[in-house]
Structures are given as structure tokens and as C-alpha cells.
């Protein structure tokens, strides 16, 4: 009927007007006095007495708390997680990369905890500035040494700073994404709260017992 379409349309707008917002404030969320007190771990009265300047800021709407975005554990982000002890320098990742941005230089002479003798990495550079995070390098890694990371904030003023070197990879926090790593998903691993520091836990196989490890080292000597 003529004339009914418009009110019906506006009713939809009205419905959405009272709906909870779906947008998320990022990287910081504004909090009021109660939120700021909760963040500081005090009750509001104590907060006002102990930290008057902060409480005035909070009442004025200037207090903020950082927000963690909801992401899937499979999210393919940067900050690659790399376990040098697992790497045999086979360069599968470098061959599989569509853009050829992984540079590997290796020399023989490393004694690996898993494989015995293997190559030692001298250079392992990933040019994150050109990376498109397709995850093919991670898919190619036969020893689960390289994992996608979970973060995505990596802006710099200089392009050269986006080349991640071996030292940086080793020093980085180990928060591997469960992309192409079913072993993490089986254990319901959440990279946003947990870390995997031990390289044995990052592999697809079962972790060898301490006795087996000891025996292996004794045998090799």
C-alpha cells in the first residue's frame, strides 16, 4: 500500500537505534569512574580517595583501558613464532614462499636435539614488509619450526625495520597461531592467553620422555 513502506523502513531504523552497538573501540576503550576503579583493582570510594587526579580524569571521560580484539586462534598474523631448535635449515619455507621473501644461509655442523646432525642457521630473514601472510611457508615446514604469529600491529617509519632477523625471531614471545597446526587445536590452545616456550611442545609428535632424551645424548657421545 502506498505510504506504508516509509514508516516500516523507519521502524527498522528505530529498532537499530536501541540495539547494542557492534563496533569495538580500539586500541583503547573509554571507561567511567567505575571502570577505572575496577581496572585499578580497588573499590570506587577507595579509588577516589587514593587517586583523586585519576578519578577526575575518569569522570571527565578521559580514562581508557586497552582492548584486546577477539580473534580466532587460526588468525594468520605477523610476529612469526620460530623455534631454532626444531629447524634443520631445509629451506622448504623459502622455496614455498610465493614472493621469495625468506632468506636462509646455513652451514653444516649443528647437533640437533631431534635429528642428530643438521645444518646450522646463520641467516634467517623474513621481509615482513612484503609478506602477504598466506601461510604457505608454515604449511611447508616439515618440522613445525615456523608458525604464524597472532599479532598484527607492526608499523614502522623505516622499511628496513620490517626485516625480521633470526635474533629477533628467537627473542620474540612464542605465541604460535594454530593455523595448519592441528596439534594446538587438539589441546584447545589459545595463543591470546598462553605461550609455548618449549620447542618440544610445538611439534606434531609426542614429546619424548626425559629418559629417552638422556639416552640419546649418551648414545651420541
Amino acid at each position: 500500500m502506498i505510504g506504508l513502506g516509509l514508516p516500516r523502513g523507519f521502524l527498522v531504523t528505530l529498532k537499530n537505534f536501541v540495539r547494542a552497538p557492534v563496533t569495538v573501540q580500539y586500541p583503547d576503550r573509554h571507561v567511567g569512574l567505575f571502570g577505572a576503579a575496577k581496572e585499578a583493582g580497588m573499590n570506587p570510594f577507595r579509588f577516589v580517595v587514593k587517586r583523586p587526579v585519576d578519578s577526575i580524569k575518569a569522570i571527565a571521560g578521559l580514562a581508557t583501558v586497552p582492548v584486546a580484539l577477539e580473534q580466532s586462534p587460526r588468525f594468520r598474523g605477523n610476529e612469526f613464532t620460530f623455534y631454532e631448535d626444531r629447524c634443520t635449515a631445509c629451506a622448504s619455507c623459502a622455496k614455498y614462499c610465493p614472493l621469495g621473501i625468506i632468506e636462509i644461509v646455513s652451514v653444516p655442523g649443528k647437533i640437533d636435539a631431534q635429528e642428530g646432525e643438521s645444518y646450522k642457521l646463520e641467516v634467517f630473514d623474513i621481509d615482513i614488509g612484503r609478506c602477504m601472510f598466506c601461510g604457505l611457508c608454515v604449511e611447508a615446514c616439515p618440522y613445525d619450526a615456523l608458525h604464524m604469529g597472532t599479532k598484527f600491529e607492526r608499523s614502522t617509519y623505516v622499511r628496513d625495520e620490517l626485516i625480521v632477523t633470526l635474533d629477533e625471531l628467537n627473542a620474540a614471545e612464542k605465541k604460535p597461531s594454530s593455523f595448519y597446526r592441528p596439534q594446538f587445536e587438539e589441546n584447545a590452545f589459545d595463543p591470546y592467553t598462553e605461550t609455548v616456550d618449549d620447542h618440544y611442545d610445538a611439534g606434531r609428535h609426542e614429546r619424548p620422555s626425559d629418559e629417552d632424551l638422556k639416552k640419546k645424548w649418551v648414545d651420541e657421545r
Partner: peptide, 23 residues
């Protein structure tokens, strides 16, 4: 993002199927 870890640049399919089962 749950399926393949990316929202737009999916690259989810591989010859003969997909790279990983749904979580």
C-alpha cells in the same frame, strides 16, 4: 577467520580440497 585464519585473502583451498578441517 575461524576456518582459514584470514578474512579476505583466504587462500583456503588447495588442489583436491581445503588445507584444514573446520575448527
Amino acid at each position: 577467520e575461524m576456518l582459514c585464519g584470514a578474512r579476505i585473502t583466504n587462500s583456503y583451498l588447495r588442489p583436491g580440497g581445503v588445507f584444514m578441517d573446520a575448527p
